[in-house]
Design a protein around this nucleic acid. Structure first.
Lengths: 150, 150
DNA sequence: GGTTTAAGTTCCCTTAGGGAACCCAGTTTG
DNA sequence: CAAACTGGGTTCCCTAAGGGAACTTAAACC
C-alpha cells in the first residue's frame, strides 16, 4: 500500500511508519521475534497472502530489519532479526502493553512477557533515558530539532 | 486499507494495529498530540486527502482514542486525545526514538522532546514495570497468557 | 445578499491487497 | 529412475482502498 512515501518526511514517526507501517508488517516482525522464521510457517500462522508476505519480507530485509539466511545449504531461507530489527521489537512491546490495557477485555492478555532480570510476568514502562523518571505524553515539551524541515 | 480485520485476532499487537495501523493514523495522532486539533489544519499539515482524513478521524473517535469536540458553539469541531489516546502516544515516542537512532542520518532528529522532570532533551527508554531494570527484546521470554486462543 | 471559512462528501481513477493456481529446484519415496 | 513432496516463491484476476479535485452545507462576516 502506502501511496504516499512517508520515508521522505522530516519526521521520525513518519519514517518509522515507512519501515513497519504497512499492513501485516508488525505481525511478521512479531512472528520472527517469537521464533517463527520460515516463509511457510509465517504464512500459515498469520493467514497472510503469499504475495503480500513476499513483499513485506523483501521490504523488511531491504530496510535492514530482517536478514535472509540460507539453511540446509540449499535454496531454503530463514528470516532473522538484525540489531536494527531487535530494537524495533521495543515498538511491539509497547503495542502489547497498550493492547493488553485497553483492548484485551475479560479474557486477559493473550501473551505474557517474563522479564529475565526479575523473573516476573511484566510489561514495559517508559522512562526518560537521561534521568530515569517516567516519561509519557504529558511529561514532555516538543521542540524543533536539527533535522527539522523549517 | 486493511482487508483483513486484525482486531479479531488473539494478539494485542494485532489489535493495536487495528486501531492505529492504517496509513496516516500515527501521523494524525502525532498532529493532535502536537497541538494541531482541526480538520483543515491537519489536512494541510499532512497533505492527506480529505476523504482519507475523514475516515481516519472517524475511526480513531470510534476507537476512543480521539474525542470530537464542538467549539464556537456552531458546527465546528476539534479533535482531542482521550486518556486512551494519550497513552497511545507512548507508541509515538518509541517510534520517534527508533527513527531518530536508525533513520535520521546526518541531519539529526527533526523533533526533540524536553522532559519536564529533568529539563533535559531526551528520549524514552523501556524498563520493566515491576523491577525497573531495562526491558527489551532479549530480556524477555514469551508465555501464553489467559487470553490466548489455544 | 454575497463571500468566506470549516468540515465534510462525492466522483472518478489508479493501485494495492486477497486468494487461488502455478512454478521450480532439490529431496525423499517406491 | 520416475513420481511425489517440500519450501519458497510468482502470476493472474478481482475487488476494495487511496489520491485528488470538485461539490456541499451551515454559520458568520461584510
Amino acid at each position: 500500500m502506502q501511496r504516499t512515501r512517508f520515508g521522505e518526511m522530516a519526521c521520525s514517526i513518519a519514517r518509522t511508519t515507512d519501515v513497519i507501517g504497512e499492513p501485516w508488517s508488525p505481525l511478521v516482525l512479531r512472528d520472527v521475534f517469537a521464533g517463527v522464521h520460515r516463509f511457510d510457517q509465517i504464512q500459515a500462522d498469520l493467514g497472510i497472502s503469499r504475495k503480500v508476505l513476499t513483499e513485506r519480507l523483501n521490504h523488511l530485509v531491504e530496510q535492514g530489519v530482517l536478514e535472509r539466511r540460507a539453511y540446509d545449504g540449499r535454496p531454503r531461507f530463514e528470516y532473522h532479526l538484525t540489531d536494527k530489527g531487535t530494537e524495533l521489537v521495543d515498538l511491539l512491546m509497547v503495542m502489547t502493553r497498550w493492547g493488553d490495557r485497553w483492548l484485551a477485555g475479560e479474557a486477559g492478555p493473550p501473551v505474557l512477557y517474563r522479564h529475565h532480570a526479575c523473573g516476573e510476568i511484566s510489561g514495559v514502562d517508559l522512562r526518560c533515558a537521561r534521568c530515569g523518571e517516567p516519561m509519557h505524553a504529558r511529561d514532555v515539551d516538543l521542540l524543533p530539532g536539527p533535522g527539522s524541515a523549517g
